[in-house]
């Protein structure tokens, strides 16, 4: 029951994120300049002076394979709560700065909340589309499904039916036949591995059920992970079942 309330709370949080207008107060030139100053101290070393993801340290974590540091100049963001191909919300960028990305980017929660919002404002200056496009937020209906045995069982069937195993492997170890064939590349044409779903620290876009549901709906732009929105819209229960199954693979349910 505790897990149910936890999921419910997270779902409300998700709904809030998806339906709210940008949470930060109006951005000023001062914010952008402050953000630039912080960016140059904390972010430039990986993302580069011009935001192309070519900072002096960017090569080493992904020398010959993905993921390299994000190129902010092309408007292609992995971690969003918006539909595939759309720009992220400010909250999405803020969340990534705050939480980091397990394995590749540390959390910058050591920066104050104000500083992180200022960095968000500065990052958006690298891509002109932020001035013109209004991100389209994914739409979810219904409430989360408790992670019970029946839900996990149904999620396992969906995992097979939706062909997730071709990349992630039958056991979710990231060793599906497409992955083993070396056919997966990111938008920079670097080889990329599907997530090993059995590794509890490997969930780059968050490891709660609502994070996983969000990932299923948005996909991870710039990677081979597609959006399943068209298959899951109107079948949100299935998204929760699948999320419960995926998390069970790493013992997180």
């Amino acid at each position: 029951m505790k897990a149910f309330w936890k999921n419910l709370t997270m779902a409300f949080g998700l709904v809030l994120v998806l339906t709210s207008i940008v949470g930060a107060s109006e951005v000023t030139e001062h914010d952008i300049q402050q953000g630039k100053s912080i960016y140059e101290r904390s972010c430039l070393i990986c993302h580069g002076e011009s935001g192309k993801g070519d900072g002096p340290a960017a090569f080493y974590n992904a020398a010959f394979s993905a993921p390299r540091a994000r190129d902010f100049t092309v408007g292609n963001f992995k971690f969003r709560s918006t539909v595939s191909g759309s720009l992220p919300l400010d909250e999405d960028i803020f969340r990534t700065i705050t939480n980091g990305i397990p394995g590749t980017m540390p959390s910058f929660s050591g920066l104050s909340s104000e500083q992180r919002w200022q960095v968000v404002a500065y990052i958006k200056t690298f891509y002109g589309g932020f001035q013109e496009e209004i991100p389209e937020v994914i739409k979810l209906a219904g409430l989360p499904i408790l992670s019970a045995a029946e839900s996990v069982r149904r999620g396992k069937i969906l995992f097979q039916d939706m062909d997730c195993h071709s990349c992630h492997g039958r056991q979710g170890r990231g060793d599906g036949k497409v992955a083993l064939a070396g056919e997966l590349h990111d938008s920079r044409d670097l080889p990329i591995s599907p997530n090993d779903l059995t590794n509890p620290t490997g969930w780059k876009n968050g490891a709660t059920a609502s994070d996983v549901v969000r990932t299923l709906f948005t996909g991870l732009d710039g990677t081979p992970m597609p959006s399943y929105e068209s298959q899951l819209i109107g079948h949100e229960d299935d998204a929760w079942h699948l999320a419960n199954y995926l998390l069970s693979l790493s013992g997180q349910n």
């Binding site: 993905a66 397990p102 080889p191």
Partner: peptide, 26 residues
């Protein structure tokens, strides 16, 4: 020669949940 997985490793790597190569050339 597989693409290496992200590994959370000693002290700092564990603390910040990042791969060693975030801080090291190698």
């Amino acid at each position: 020669l597989r693409v290496p997985e992200a590994e959370a490793l000693p002290a700092f790597a564990r603390k910040y949940q990042v791969n060693c190569n975030v801080c090291h050339t190698r």
